[in-house]
Design a protein around this nucleic acid. Sequence first.
DNA 1: GACAATTTGTCCGTATGTATT
DNA 2: CAATACATACGGACAAATTGT
Lengths: 80, 80
Amino acid sequence: MPAPRKFEPHYRRIIADVRGRIASGEWAPGYKLPSTKALAEMYEVGSQSTVRQAITILIETGELYGHQGLGVFVAEGPSR
Amino acid sequence: MPAPRKFEPHYRRIIADVRGRIASGEWAPGYKLPSTKALAEMYEVGSQSTVRQAITILIETGELYGHQGLGVFVAEGPSR
DNA sequence: GACAATTTGTCCGTATGTATT
DNA sequence: CAATACATACGGACAAATTGT
């Protein structure tokens, strides 16, 4: 049986939080997220790599999109 | 305009290859993938971290599922 | 054009934890 | 307990793209 995760790892916690902010409208489509560095402080993770893992997944799923040198943005919602 | 990626990074190449094998039926639902270490050699990437990044994304998207201590397996198809 | 600063993007290596055999 | 293998976190190095000087 698939072992239920006892504790949510950091990167999943970040994914969930970002999704929540998008769902609540706090971060609307087109919104530019704080820099990776700022997010690492905001979520109190010791490394930007951890933030990056979360961002990479959210980009892969199409919920965010990134532009090198510019930033990471909220993708256009499915409401279109 | 979204700049088209010039070169496919390793982890995306791995994702594409795994998806291809699943789509072709070579790796059917329930199939146990080679170990992370073996995959790293198979795809000729210098680190298991890179393989892990691909696997993590495929697990996140529900295409694979992992069992600690056992292996990573192909998930049941979307045909359900 | 050249240059530096900023930020995202990729890869690697290591340490540690957890689960199964 | 030991071996194997997946899971998470961190840190560093470098590349690529944008912006401003």
